[in-house]
Simulated scan of single mutants.
Amino acid sequence: MSAICGGREGARRTTSVVIQSRASWRAVQRVGKHVTRLAPTAITSDELTDWLIETALRYVGKLILVPALPSLPLPLPFTLPQPLAYVISNSPHLQLRPEKPGCPLVALRAVR
Rank of each mutant, 00 (worst) to 15 (best):
L65N: 04
A68Q: 10
V35P: 05
T44Q: 02
E47Y: 02
A85P: 00
S21G: 13
I88N: 01
T44R: 03
L76H: 10
A11S: 09
P40G: 05
L80F: 12
V60R: 12
W25I: 01
R13S: 07
S16I: 00
I64Q: 12
H34D: 09
P70S: 10
T15H: 06
G6I: 04
G10E: 00
P67G: 04
V35I: 13
S89H: 11
T44F: 00
S16H: 10
I43L: 15
K62G: 05
L65T: 02
Q20E: 11
L72I: 03
L38T: 14
R22C: 14
I43E: 02
I88G: 02
V60G: 03
T15F: 08
L84Q: 03
F78V: 04
T14Y: 12
F78H: 14
I43R: 02
L74P: 00
Q82M: 10
K33W: 06
T49A: 11
L38S: 06
K33E: 07
W51Q: 12
S71L: 11
L76W: 09
R30T: 08
L69T: 06
D50A: 07
T49W: 09
S91R: 00
I43C: 11
F78D: 02
D46G: 12
T41A: 09
D46Y: 05
A42H: 15
R22V: 07
V18L: 15
V87I: 14
S24D: 11
L72W: 06
A56S: 15
A23H: 01
E47V: 11
L48G: 00
R30N: 02
S16D: 10
L63N: 11
A85N: 03
N90D: 06
V28A: 08
I53A: 04
K62D: 11
I43F: 03
E9M: 13
Y86P: 00
R22I: 10
P40H: 00
A85S: 10
G6H: 05
W25M: 15
T55D: 07
A42R: 14
W25G: 04
V28E: 09
Q29T: 01
Q82N: 05
S45R: 00
L76T: 14
S89E: 06
T41H: 15
T79C: 08
L65C: 05
L65D: 08
N90C: 10
V87R: 03
T49N: 04
V31L: 08
A39C: 02
D50N: 12
R13Y: 07
K62L: 05
L63I: 05
V87S: 01
P70T: 08
V31F: 07
T41E: 14
K33D: 11
P67T: 07
L74M: 09
P77I: 14
D46T: 10
R26G: 09
T14G: 10
L52C: 09
L84A: 03
E47I: 11
P81C: 06
V35W: 11
P77D: 13
V60N: 04
V18C: 13
I64F: 04
R30D: 01
R8Y: 09
P67Y: 02
R37L: 01
L76E: 15
S45D: 12
V31K: 11
V87E: 00
P77F: 13
R30Q: 12
T36K: 07
L76G: 12
V17S: 09
T55K: 05
R26D: 13
P70N: 07
L65R: 12
G32V: 13
I64V: 15
V28P: 06
T36N: 08
L69S: 03
G32M: 07
R8F: 13
I88W: 05
